[in-house]
Amino acid sequence: MKIGVLLKQVPDTETKIKIRADGKGVEEGEIKWVINPYDEYAVEEALRLKEKAGGEVVIVSAGPARATEAIRQALAMGADRGIRIDTTGIEQDPYTTAVMLAGAAKNESFEIIFAGKQAVDDDCAQVLIGVAEKLGWPHVTPVEKFALSGKTATLQRPVAGGTKEMIEADLPVVVGCEKGLNEPRYASLPGIMKAKSKPVAELKASELLGTERARINVTKYSLPPERRAGKIIPGEPEAAAAELVRLLREEAKVI
């Protein structure tokens, strides 16, 4: 079975983000880059499927040269090869990213594609849906349980109120992976050394995009305002509770 994984390299969640002086982006110099954590669930699920069904796991990522490192990290976990779409000089938004990834996926004729339900940097959660749309496939997201029997996938997704939705989908399908789907393995030392010699092909963004252009125009980045200090209400519990209710009603105006 030919399994595709969509992967994005994102700043480590502990990175202290600094906005560039021109306000058009973030300073990348000191960022530690990692595989988008939700994409790790996707890699893991793909590897588990391969272990059961055989075949090949191919990692596809659209990004600058550094994104190759994230691909290599996935190869070290056990994926077989990688494709990087070089986005140098391209205006990248969820739309163009989806167009490029779908273009690469089409050439590979995957039978199933796993992706993280969203990337933790911009949290758009748009790309996997866009890829499914461009391929003319269904998608299911966020998925917290996955099973495959023959050519039919059974997927569980949470819905509001704590209930679960069970969905059956015939392949091909794009699966958006949620936390809890699995426990991603980490690369072993031999895995890391083997990954060095696994192939990573490079595609040109311009060839995949054709005349398509970004739909989002970033005007400015800014950091969220710093949280204001909290207020401690002193006194006996009863009086303090009464005061808290008063403040919530009169000052915060939330009740």
Binding site: R72, Q73, A76, Y186, A187, S188, L189, I192, M193
Partner: peptide, 14 residues
């Protein structure tokens, strides 16, 4: 090298 840094990352994670 990238690989050696990755060895370190695996060790740190473990």
């Amino acid at each position: 090298s990238f690989e050696f840094k990755e060895l370190g990352a695996t060790a740190a994670r473990f």
